[in-house]
Amino acid sequence: MTAPDDELGPESVELVRPYVITNGRGLPDRDRFDLITLVTASAGDRRTDRLDPEKRSLVKLCEGGYLSVAEIAGHLRLPIGIVKVLLSDLAEAGYVQTRTPVPPAQLADIQVLQEVLDGLQARFG
């Protein structure tokens, strides 16, 4: 099975992300925010009126409970890269907290797979 001209690698197209919303900041800590990292607003009243509009809507969205990084990006219609930058600022300032997905090596893989299968069976019969 080959598609010879489709090799991925460092020689692939070099890309940079838009810096507008992120005030020119570079890419955030990529290990902290995965697509499925679960995020919620921190408990307690925190003033959001001085936050940028994007950050304010992000915190608002997360006040209702947990959402994945991907869902936040989808609801806010922002690119994933930007959401990660906003989140790392907000986490640092204490507005949001995360429930980091367990990396696969540490996952009790067998148990998660069994729970996935059981869950699918229960739902779809």
Binding site: K60, G64, Y66
Partner: peptide, 21 residues
């Protein structure tokens, strides 16, 4: 309130621990 604006089934249950993909 974003909770109302987005409806009830937006967020995950409180006890969610593991996200798989």
């Amino acid at each position: 309130d974003s909770r109302r604006a987005l409806g009830d089934n937006v967020h995950l249950p409180e006890k969610v621990q593991i996200a798989a993909k």
